[in-house]
């Protein structure tokens, strides 16, 4: 049963991520990435991390991809003539991607495969996760909070209209 669920959502993730990469319309790419992220969230739950799976759906599809869709509609980039730049560049990029894949597979099979421990209640429980996050990893947690604050301020400043634009930008106004 677990194998069946894994195969179903793994195939869904791979297929929809291919659509993300090859589709010309960025809106469709974004919606397809939503499917990919949902499938990966299911796999997180399967791996005994239900909290991270919920966070994946909340943060990624709830916040980040909505931001992407919003910017796509704001910038009006509906379509590009061809998805990739030139044939040569495409071949090089695909080759590099394949090399990355091959390297990771090699490292994976190089490492000794160790049998998986049975899933413990301690791993799945929120209590242990929270204890570690707010104990040993409290300082990184606070730093990440500061990083998000800085990012929000920086994004606001960067996306603001410049005081004296070089060219008139009236048609950008909503």
């Amino acid at each position: 049963m677990e194998t069946l669920i894994f195969l179903l959502f793994a195939l869904l993730a791979v297929g929809s991520s291919l659509v993300v990469v090859v589709h010309k319309n960025p809106v469709y790419s974004t919606m397809s990435l939503v499917v990919t992220l949902f499938s990966v969230a299911v796999l997180f739950v399967l791996l005994g991390a239900p909290f991270i799976g919920a966070l994946q759906i909340l943060i990624y599809t709830g916040a980040i991809l909505v931001l992407f869709l919003f910017v796509i509609m704001l910038l009006n980039v509906t379509r590009e003539e061809s998805a990739v730049s030139q044939q040569k560049v495409q071949a090089g990029g695909a080759l590099l991607g394949a090399l990355v894949f091959g390297g990771m597979l090699a490292v994976l099979f190089w490492n000794a495969r160790r049998p998986m421990d049975p899933m413990t209640e301690e791993l799945v429980s929120m209590k242990g996760l929270a204890r570690e996050m707010f104990g040993q990893y409290l300082l990184p947690f606070e730093i990440v909070g500061m990083l998000l604050l800085v990012a929000v301020i920086g994004a606001t400043v960067a996306a603001r209209k410049p005081p004296q634009p070089d060219k008139p930008v009236e048609d950008l106004e909503p």
Binding site: V21, F68, L75, V84, G97, F101
Partner: peptide
């Protein structure tokens, strides 16, 4: 881990070949 490698390779190929900045960002998220 194999699935993770497949997804990473697809994302890296997309980030290297796409021209649209937003599509590159989507590939990076992948």
């Amino acid at each position: 881990l194999v699935l993770s490698a497949v997804l990473f390779a697809i994302g890296s190929a997309g980030a290297l070949t796409r021209r649209n900045g937003i599509s590159i960002f989507l590939s990076i998220e992948l």
